[in-house]
Design a protein around this nucleic acid. Structure first.
Lengths: 225, 225
DNA sequence: TGTACATCAGTGAACGCGCGTTCACTGATGTAC
DNA sequence: TGTACATCAGTGAACGCGCGTTCACTGATGTAC
């Protein structure tokens, strides 16, 4: 594990009222350590402080303890991912509902490819879930799955038939993409090719659609529900 | 984190020539800690020693260092999983090739449901992969995926048509099941229902098959390759 | 059969290290009057 | 305008802890002669 700050660089402190900027710097460094470099052991108060170039004690001005830092890092990662998927959805033609599903999933794959360690962090149970604690009602990953499901519902409203419920289709495409990238990261051999991931996901989406893409811009009333 | 040995129990040492039994006990305890209890932080030399009821130094008679213990634990887990899937494949009627795919995947789901922590351990890059080390040619997870792919190839040889290549179908079913269980484990809310997992996987398999199950016991020559 | 020795299975105490966390502090920048 | 004070942004040193690892050891069980 190496510092990402060159040894000579000297941090200059933030000015009055800009103390919150350090919080972002901490989260960026923390996310970078665990997600991009893929070193979950580096997600320590001291490790993050080293990466940012501050004293370990300075972390405590922004995070009450280590679990709070971990939670913050996870939320930071999900916020980035959700934003990337939403941006992909909004690019492209509004009526091309299938293309928008694909664009979202492509954005997901790019994010997952670029963030090997995010994968492990993503589905790790938040460390606040002790028997006595709050019931932890929803994991942010479920929000992202819900967004994919909503995109399939939009397809159905546009008259596209799926081979299963939109809920199930959304879950399937998401977990298939997620797992496919995980397999890519686990592979150290010759089959490790990022170019194969996008076609895989496209194929998955097309298999779930019954009869290809119908005429665009024709949005009939709900077929059955 | 709690010991799994009741405090009063006294281990009696193994007899001459049976020293290897401790190795199994260590692996069982290590696997149980990280996979069943889902506490990856408990996979420590001292933690495993506590669980087994031995001195930390005793671990070193069977594992040269901590990475060796981690590798051993991962291999132990894969061996169990592969055995469970193979056993499921061999149960059931030999000609029911689709049923055998389903049986294997059901076994996978049961294993993954029962071993929440295995999920994280499974796809973690083995800690021996430093730049200078051996190239680590194959991750055991790929062997399991290959077995699923082989089962789909068997389906094709039996005359069943798939909506994609058997390779892609095998990867899809595997990663879909894997991800679906991961979502189940990540869910702390009301949708957390293990009964929904098997139908999900069955649905996935059926979607990949073009026209249902043809007449059994009729195994025509290879359709196209 | 006895006995010296080798091997086996495992231990107890110690080491140095990095960790999370606390606490009193420092110096710069703003505000009250 | 000056000046006392409050606040901000962040530090340095110390603490106790659990970790991985080493080392000389202990007592039981086997083997050689």
């Amino acid at each position: 594990v190496s510092n990402q700050e060159p040894a000579g660089t000297r941090r200059e402190r933030n000015r009055w009222g800009e103390g919150d900027r350090l919080r972002r710097e901490i989260l960026d460094a923390s996310f970078h350590l665990v997600s991009v470099l893929g070193a979950p052991d580096a997600l320590t108060i001291r490790g993050v402080a080293r990466a940012v170039g501050i004293a370990p004690a300075s972390i405590y001005q922004h995070f009450s303890d280590k679990p709070a830092l971990v939670r913050g890092t996870i939320e930071h990662g999900y916020a980035r991912l959700a934003q990337a998927m939403l941006a992909a959805d909004e690019t492209g033609e509004p009526n091309d509902v299938v293309g928008r599903v694909r664009a979202q999933m492509h954005a997901y794959c790019r994010f997952a490819i670029d963030n090997p360690g995010h994968y492990r962090l993503m589905l790790s149970v938040p460390p606040s879930s002790f028997p006595g604690d709050a019931p932890d009602p929803d994991n942010p990953v479920l929000d992202i799955v819900d967004q994919v499901i909503a995109s399939f519902e939009r397809c159905q409203r546009a008259g596209i038939r799926l081979r299963m419920t939109s809920h199930r289709a959304g879950v399937m495409v998401f977990v298939a993409a997620h797992g496919r990238v995980a397999l890519y990261h686990a592979d150290r051999g010759k089959d490790r090719d990022p170019e194969k991931i996008i076609p895989f996901v496209d194929d998955m989406i097309m298999v779930l659609i019954e009869s290809g893409v119908p005429d665009r811009a024709v949005i009939p009333p709900h077929p059955r529900a």
